[in-house]
């Protein structure tokens, strides 16, 4: 197996004359949890859309498993802040959805769905419709759906932005648990510095537009992490100083 899951080299994106992404290069190791944090208004959406090939990039290269990224070939899951569940499907059907599209066998689908539903604690809610669930429940459905397909790469775009702190920590802990169990490679983008430090093995700090990689910081803290731990605070402050604009 390759050591690097994702290799990005000299990624550059221009809209007309406007330079948005300026020569980004970095690697993500197999099974790594990378958080990306940057100042408000840094080109994070452009960055994600380039990574998923929604945009044609101006120059540079994005490799997954050593090959140019290809959404048909590579199983990449994408989770964002809006709870993108299908309102006409029940919880279980929502989670099955991705697997059915990938034409898995019924047996396989059943096994994955049962496992993942249990992992996120939605067993009692299998037959609920999305409108009957709270925001944090919905986000659990979305995460279950993503993990059920056993993605090789999971991209998350500020999925917990609007949740109460208490729930956010709960979901973050669940995410870490799932990640450790499945060994999925995760790229997690956020504005929230505390969240970036709470989750990431490595924390990539972006600059303001035109976006460059400012630095990548290793986060050696073991899980479960404690936000009041002096080392945690030191790391949080360090990153805050790197991006503080307010």
């Amino acid at each position: 197996m390759m050591e690097n899951k994702v290799e990005v080299s000299h990624l550059t994106k221009k809209f007309g004359d406007l330079l948005v992404l300026d020569d980004l290069s970095f690697n993500v190791k197999n099974g790594e949890f990378l958080t990306i944090v940057g100042p408000t208004g840094c080109g994070k959406t452009t960055f994600l859309n380039s990574l998923t090939k929604l945009y044609d990039i101006t120059s540079g290269e994005i490799l997954v498993n050593g090959e140019p990224v290809n959404l048909k070939k590579h199983n990449i899951a994408y989770i964002f802040q809006e709870y993108s569940t299908m309102p006409w499907l029940k919880v279980e059907e929502n989670i099955r959805f991705g697997l059915e599209i990938k034409k898995k066998s019924e047996e396989e689908i059943k096994r994955s769905v049962d496992w993942v539903i249990k992992m996120v604690g939605l067993e009692e809610y299998r037959d609920y419709y999305p409108r009957q669930l709270s925001a944090s429940m919905l986000q659990r459905v979305v995460i279950a759906r993503a993990f059920a397909t056993e993605p090789e790469l999971l991209l998350m775009d500020e999925p917990y932005g609007q949740l109460d702190l208490e729930l956010r920590f709960k979901l973050e802990d669940e995410l870490i648990k799932l990640w450790k169990k499945t060994n999925t490679t995760v790229i997690f983008i956020t504005h929230n510095i505390e969240e970036a430090v709470y989750l990431g093995e490595n924390i990539m700090v972006l600059t303001n537009k035109p976006t460059r990689v400012k630095t990548i910081i290793k986060n050696p803290l073991p899980w479960p992490r404690n936000v009041s731990d002096p080392e945690f605070i030191e790391l949080r402050n360090k990153i805050t100083d790197l991006i503080k604009w307010w």
């Binding site: 100042p39 408000t40 500020e158 932005g161 609007q162 956020t190 504005h191 929230n192 510095i193 969240e195 991006i243 604009w245 307010w246």
Partner: peptide
């Protein structure tokens, strides 16, 4: 400040 991102929120709180 419920609709704002974490950093803009810090700014507005200050």
């Amino acid at each position: 400040f419920g609709h704002l991102d974490a950093q803009t929120r810090y700014m507005m709180e200050e």
